[in-house]
Amino acid sequence: MSKQQLPKSWRWAVVAALVVGLVGFWGGIAAAAWQPTKSVEFVVPAGTGGGADIMARFIFPLVEKHKLSPQPLIVVNRSGGAGAEGFMHVKEKKGDPHVITLTLDNLFTTPLATGVPFNWKDLTPVGRLALDWFVLWVNAESPYKTAKEYFDAVKREPSKFKMGGTGTAQEDQIITIQMEQAFGLKFIYVPFKGGGDVAVSLVGKHTDSTVNNPSEAVGHWKAGRLRPLAVVDRERIPLPEWDKIPTMKEATGFDMGYTMLRGIFMPPAVSKEAQEWYVDLFRKVTETPEWKKYLADNALKPAFLAGSDYPKWLEEKETLTKDLMKKGGLVK
């Protein structure tokens, strides 16, 4: 570094500081129509490679491609404590409009199971992006062609069949317990870290069945390694190929439904303008052709929901989840 260069870099710094000040000032004036003035922290309360993570990492380039936001959304994983770390982090960012989070059902299940002082009402709801179906899968080499046959076999030999699922006291286990109670069964529930591992353990015959989301098992199904027995919903999945899978009611006569939230939240006490901007952003995201293809490829239920209907739906969903978890003895 020579002597001449230094004053130059100083002058440069002064210019930069002036520019910064101006931009900040201008940003203040333009506050009426809010938009992010710096990069947005996109908190994923789950590890890399899971459903929520892949979706967030899919949204980030999508927003860039369609220039929907002046600032990038930066995905940050905070997976500790089944997502509790991420939720607490967002909760503590009170009033900060540059933080959003994408959550699954662990929004309800994690606080109930771990006793972390957190409730979804601590956050500002933005919108529901989609819903995730659950399908009962068995290995394609197993002799069970229908859910009824499989459940009968499980009934004959309690505590022999292994049900693989993601995590403990979360949606997969809730559904398993629901099945056990409805049909008088007893599974061995084996928790895994992620949905991909669950699917592979079934392909490798380390477990006997799973309730994987469609996206986690679709590749193995197409390759002829897994067989879907029933959709855990009241209607069939309205997509080609998927529509051949019967609902639980059609397969077993017992009406059973559970779909999982994929929703966006902000920290508490953010301005109305900021909230509206994000609602608008995600509405635009869900209208892109790439998003529609993504939902169809991964068999997700297109179900964008925002405004006052969203908190109402959350409320119902929470009551339902709490009820199921209490019945299953999963509430701490």
Partner: peptide, 20 residues
């Protein structure tokens, strides 16, 4: 983790990672 991000990219291009 890097592979996880690439996996997200595959989906973006409309490819389904997995046995197929």
């Amino acid at each position: 983790p890097t592979m996880a991000v690439i996996l997200g990219g595959l989906m973006m291009w409309g490819l389904q990672p997995g046995p197929m």
